[in-house]
């Protein structure tokens, strides 16, 4: 930081008090070695120097891959290119192939459906549990919060092994419980059909995501003053009306952000689907966007098609994230 030396050069009291006076507004300008010069002229390089490391690593590890992806998505890339044959430029052919492939549309539709169902379920249950936290006394609330925190803290892969074990067809405790309750679930294979595969995946994703929603919404609920609710009650508003007309509007900002984040996160769900597929589910009929790209790019080395698909996912994510980023910016200013 070049400013260090500048500061040391001026020990005279006059300069110091001048520094102090302007300090709050423009700390970088205040330390300029020529305090008599017009202040606003001088461009300080310090902030740019400070940004260099972060920018360099982001360019290298994120921007370059994005660029590579854009270029590669217009190339015919296959096994031959593994042996250093330069790829052919094919323009939009990869995209056209993708768009014409019914399998791609199935995967996209499945991912969107999975994402929406999971995000909405997560937010509904999360809000329910937040209201529950708000409704009970300290001890039950603490118990509920600790349980949710433990679920939230579990590493994804560890939770996945546990759920695969819980839903194990032969000795899993879920089948045992359902059989005890009178249903015929002896040796029921949950992962065999796509619908029950997605049911298990949804249970896992919701279990993992609800704690974040509950804690965020609960924080919002504690901001609502009890007096307002009480006044509404005295005026004859029932429980539902109090919820719809007071609570809901007040937690709306939190709800919107949390819902957006869930949609963004659930759209990119990969680990859960991949590990459930590893556990013995049919792959082609359970693929979502992430695992589909993985199969294209890593398993069959069709980088051109994988890149085109990735670009598609990136655009989808950016479209979905835009409102979230906008609201964060609004908060920042």
């Amino acid at each position: 930081m070049s400013e260090d030396t500048d500061a040391k050069v001026r020990p005279e009291p006059a300069a110091k008090s001048r520094q102090h006076a302007g300090a709050v507004a423009e700390p970088d300008e205040v330390l300029s070695p020529a305090p008599t010069a017009p202040r606003r002229r001088r461009v300080t390089w310090t902030p740019y120097v400070l940004l260099v490391p972060a920018v360099v690593i982001l360019l290298a590890a994120l921007a370059y891959p994005v660029g590579w992806q854009l270029v590669t998505s217009t190339q015919q890339f296959g096994l031959a290119q593994q042996f250093h044959v330069p790829p052919d430029f094919v323009g939009a052919a990869n995209y056209l192939t993708l768009l014409a492939d019914p399998q791609v549309w199935t995967v996209v539709a499945r991912s969107l459906a999975f994402c929406l169902v999971n995000a909405i379920l997560t937010v509904l249950i999360g809000v329910g549990l937040a209201m529950l936290m708000n409704a009970v006394g300290r001890l039950p609330r603490l118990i509920l919060q600790i349980a949710l925190l433990l679920a939230w803290a579990m590493p994804v892969v560890a939770s996945m092994t546990v759920f695969v074990w819980l839903f194990n067809w032969h000795t899993g405790v879920v089948n045992w419980l359902l059989t005890r309750l009178g249903f015929d679930y002896v040796n029921h294979n949950w992962l065999a059909s796509p619908l029950s595969f997605y049911f298990v995946a949804t249970v896992i994703v919701v279990w993992m995501s609800v704690p974040f929603v509950s804690f965020s919404v609960y924080a919002g609920l504690t901001q609502i003053s009890g007096e307002v609710l009480e006044a509404a009650q005295l005026d004859g508003a029932g429980g539902w009306r109090r919820f719809a007309n007071i609570t809901l509007p007040m937690i709306r900002p939190v709800l919107m952000i949390v819902l957006l984040l869930q949609i963004i996160w659930d759209l990119r769900v990969f680990t859960q689907i991949k590990l459930l597929q590893d556990a013995g589910a049919p792959i082609a009929s359970t693929d979502l966007l992430g695992t589909y790209i993985y199969r294209l790019g890593v398993a069959s080395s069709d980088f051109g098609m994988a890149a085109a698909m990735s670009v598609f996912v990136l655009i989808l994510t950016i479209l979905v994230s835009a409102p979230y980023v906008r609201s964060l910016i609004k908060e920042d200013n």
Partner: peptide, 23 residues
């Protein structure tokens, strides 16, 4: 810069891993 940072944060690994592998 702040805007870029916020957007980058949203980039999914699932849309980038093939390129990062090649890199």
């Amino acid at each position: 810069f702040v805007l870029t940072i916020l957007f980058i944060q949203m980039l999914p690994a699932e849309g980038l891993f093939v390129a990062q592998y090649k890199l």
